[in-house]
């Protein structure tokens, strides 16, 4: 049995509408109109123990809603989910002791207290034995380099430092499943990298199953082998990161460095889309199956110092995927 099994999960919100102006307000006092929003629409997937899966989608795609249902915060409208064999929204204590949720946009630490007090409260909530608490805390603070900050008021920590403590607070009870919602949101590049490395290391070391949402491609690329793409509440893609390229990108990029100048944009247009064209350099976007043919032709025609063939950056592909799913919806 898989550690996370989601089947036909659906969440519908009712949102009320109001017409503008005082007239609208008066009308709303007596009669309200609602529209239905399908935040998550018939989503199914399975995740095996120890996997690190990325959950990808633009804002409002339904990633966070799915994660919240998996952590039992929200009741679904329909569908089923089993995590560690439990139905999350029954909120059994045995279940809640075995998973953790970290949200980049919300904090669980006490604002006006040093982080260690919140950590200790969590230790008590999760019933972590003293010696184990000490061990885990030492290990984590070491790994994240925040040992010295344990006694500092949370409100005086930087966003990155606070995120590190959020992570520690959630991992004190060594959960078997870790749900991460936008863990790097708003962080600077260095802090983002730190957090990413930590997550990778942690998954590697403890074999904890991790489901991670993000809309930073960087996070996903650095961490996940497998991604689930979701947009408008619908699952769009589920598979290896590299398969996205094969599936959604029909082109490759050819970068050229010429020996002599004089190659004009018009000259290159016959081969494919010209992305860049300077004096001695040019970048072409060419259909996958024509790459060999085109490069041969170019090499014959001009004297080329350097030729480089690469995949279109994944970020761009994903963007295209989102846009195309937009027009479908």
């Amino acid at each position: 049995m898989s550690i996370i099994e989601v089947e036909n999960l659906t969440k519908v919100y009712r949102v009320n509408k109001k017409k503008p102006g005082i007239g609208g307000a008066i009308e709303a006092m007596f009669k309200r109109e609602y529209t239905e929003v399908r935040a998550v629409n018939d989503v199914s997937f399975k995740i095996e123990e120890g996997e690190l899966v990325g959950f990808l989608g633009p804002n409002g795609a339904g990633k966070t809603t799915t994660l919240k249902m998996l952590s039992g915060i929200l009741y679904p409208t329909s569908g089923t989910a089993k995590v560690l064999g439990f139905t999350p929204w029954e909120r059994k204590n045995e279940y809640r002791r075995q998973f953790a949720l970290v949200m980049g946009q919300k904090n669980q630490l006490w604002w006006d207290l040093p982080a260690q007090e919140s950590l200790y409260l969590n230790k008590e909530i999760y019933n972590v034995p003293d010696d184990e608490y000490k061990k885990v805390l030492d290990e984590m603070t070491e790994l994240l380099q925040v040992k010295k900050l344990l006694g500092v008021m949370v409100r005086e920590l930087s966003l990155g430092e606070r995120m590190k403590f959020e992570l520690i607070a959630s991992l004190l009870h060594t959960p078997r499943v870790l749900l991460l919602d936008e863990p790097t949101i708003g962080l600077d590049v260095v802090a983002q990298k730190n957090i990413r490395e930590f997550i990778k290391e942690y998954n590697h070391r403890t074999k904890t199953t991790i489901l991670l949402t993000s809309h930073y491609m960087g996070d996903i690329q650095a961490l996940c082998d497998r991604v689930i793409i979701i947009n408008h509440g619908k699952k769009f893609f589920d598979g290896g990161l590299n398969d996205i390229i094969g599936k959604f990108s029909a082109s490759k990029l050819i970068s050229l460095t010429f020996e002599n100048g004089g190659v004009s944009k018009e000259d290159l247009l016959q081969f494919g889309e010209v992305l860049e064209c300077e004096k001695l350099k040019a970048v072409l976007k060419v259909k996958r199956e024509e790459v060999t043919k085109v490069s041969n032709q170019i090499l014959e025609k001009w004297s080329v110092l350097d030729i480089n063939i690469e995949e279109v950056p994944i970020e761009e592909i994903i963007q295209k995927v989102f846009v195309s799913s937009e027009t479908q919806a």
Binding site: G21, I22, G24, A25
Partner: peptide, 12 residues
């Protein structure tokens, strides 16, 4: 004034 009034009425 009217914006404020609408805000109040929304919570009837």
């Amino acid at each position: 004034l009217s914006t404020r009034t609408q805000e109040d009425m929304a919570y009837r």
